[in-house]
């Protein structure tokens, strides 16, 4: 579904990603693991087209999205839940969702489904996004991305700063999406959480990717984890 091949990118003259390659199939969860500053967020931003790919390609289905301007990438069904949520702070919950719905012209049905998944959002439709609690903000960031009915979903540390019950709710939402066939690329720091839901794991080390490893293999071979991220 999502195919990243020899992708390189960076900021200005600084190269951050070097020849990163991996794939995510529909119905699986691939985790991107790496130390702080390894380039995980940079990788997701490059997939979204927010950073220009210097070389290599990103394809989604049959479409080479790395050739497109950034604002056309999400129209091909790539939803993005950025690190730190990045909600439109002064817009209401309903308006944030509306921005998501407009991406692929989705309407009431989609919105109702999202609100069913996160009923707390439905009770706060006219509340400004920056007045929501941290957990509610994460729900909204997730809901906003789901409003485009993505076939590929990129999540950047969705559980950062959340309490266990919220983390569990996010986890359930993510596995439910996987079971519906969505291709999920998850960036996560908490290794235990990763191993419990990921199908495969890709390590990023100083902007370079290692071949994907099955999550089962990591569980039985913890010194791999030690090697790449020092835990």
């Amino acid at each position: 579904m999502l195919n990243v091949e020899n992708l390189s990118s960076g900021y200005g003259d600084i190269r951050v990603l070097h020849d990163v390659s991996f794939t995510v199939e529909g119905g699986e969860i691939v985790c991107l693991l790496g130390r702080n500053g390894a380039g995980k967020t940079t990788c997701l931003k490059t997939i979204m087209g927010l950073l220009r790919a210097r070389s290599g390609s990103v394809t989604c289905g049959d479409v080479e999205v790395s050739r497109l301007p950034a604002n056309e990438v999400p129209r091909h069904g790539i939803g993005y839940i950025p690190q730190g949520r990045r909600l439109f702070a002064e817009l209401t919950v309903a308006e944030n969702l509306e921005i998501g719905l407009m991406v692929r012209g989705k309407g009431r049905e989609t919105r109702d489904r999202v609100l069913e998944m996160f009923p707390r959002l439905g009770e706060r439709l006219n509340q400004r996004a920056d007045t929501l609690s941290g957990g509610e903000q994460q729900m909204l960031a997730t809901g906003r991305a789901l409003c485009i009915e993505p076939s590929v979903l990129l999540l950047d540390e969705p559980t950062e700063g959340l309490q266990p019950s919220m983390i569990e709710q996010i986890r359930q939402a993510v596995t439910a999406l996987r079971d519906r066939g969505v291709a999920i690329l998850l960036v996560e720091q908490r290794v235990d959480a990763v191993l419990s839901i990921a199908n495969r794991v890709v390590f990023l080390e100083n902007g370079r990717s290692h071949p994907a490893i099955d999550a089962g293999e990591l569980k039985t071979n913890p010194n791999l984890l030690h090697r790449f991220i020092g835990v």
Binding site: G49, L50, P82, F88, L91, I99
Partner: peptide, 24 residues
């Protein structure tokens, strides 16, 4: 209006607006 909504979203975070298909 939707045009106004898109303008306000761009004002608040133009990068995220792009990530949600706004032709900034």
């Amino acid at each position: 209006t939707r045009i106004g909504l898109v303008m306000r979203a761009t004002q608040l975070d133009s990068e995220m607006a792009r990530a949600f298909a706004v032709p900034v």
